[in-house]
């Protein structure tokens, strides 16, 4: 049986996302390949991973508007559907994931849950107790309203997920 990680990667591809599997050691290079400049971002709050200086982590509206990429952490991710859970935070994860044409989401393998059942185990307390907000985002924004299917409407036209494999499974 496929692991959650390979299922996640397959589902991302099915939903027209790019995906890079990497390690803590190789994260900087993988991220640099995924990001197009100018880029804005939200700091990752991860002791092993950080964003390069080229990614503006405290952007102004003008920078947000001009950015080609927005790099964010996620709350968790759902393997079955290739979904990333985007939290509404004071650090602006939601607008940074939404305004630039390319959303680069950084996902730790440990953040994967297998399916919708498990996603709702996460969402229950988040929404009901913490009263937080989460966008379950799957693939680039899309519309068929102008005739043929077009990707990239009000939201990003490209989604690139950088998955950092857990060290335990690597060894």
């Amino acid at each position: 049986m496929a692991t959650s990680l390979t299922r996640f990667e397959d589902a991302l591809v099915d939903h027209d996302c790019d995906v890079t599997r990497t390690s803590v050691a190789e994260f900087d290079g993988a991220l640099a390949d995924a990001v197009r400049e100018p880029a804005v971002g939200v700091a990752l709050d991860d002791q092993d991973l950080s964003l390069p200086a080229a990614v503006e982590t405290d952007p102004t509206p003008a920078q947000l508007q001009a950015a080609a990429s927005g790099v964010t952490p996620v709350a968790f991710a759902v393997a079955d559907h290739g979904t990333v859970a985007i939290p509404s935070t004071a650090t602006a994860v939601e607008p940074v994931s939404l305004y630039p044409d390319r959303h680069v989401a950084v996902v730790r393998e440990e953040q994967l849950v297998p399916d919708t059942d498990a996603a709702f185990d996460e969402l229950g307390p988040t929404l009901a107790r913490e009263r937080d907000s989460v966008i379950m985002a799957t693939g680039p924004s899309a519309t068929g309203d102008m005739g043929a299917l077009v990707q990239g409407v009000h939201g990003p036209s490209e989604v690139h997920v950088v998955v950092v494999e857990s060290e335990v499974t690597q060894s």
Binding site: P61, A92, E94, T138
Partner: peptide
């Protein structure tokens, strides 16, 4: 594409493009 679960008022900062910088 988006199943948005918003519990407003949300924590995201508002965006005032009149103060672009």
């Amino acid at each position: 594409q988006y199943f948005s679960l918003l519990t407003p008022p949300v924590d995201s900062p508002t965006l005032d493009f009149d103060e672009p910088d």
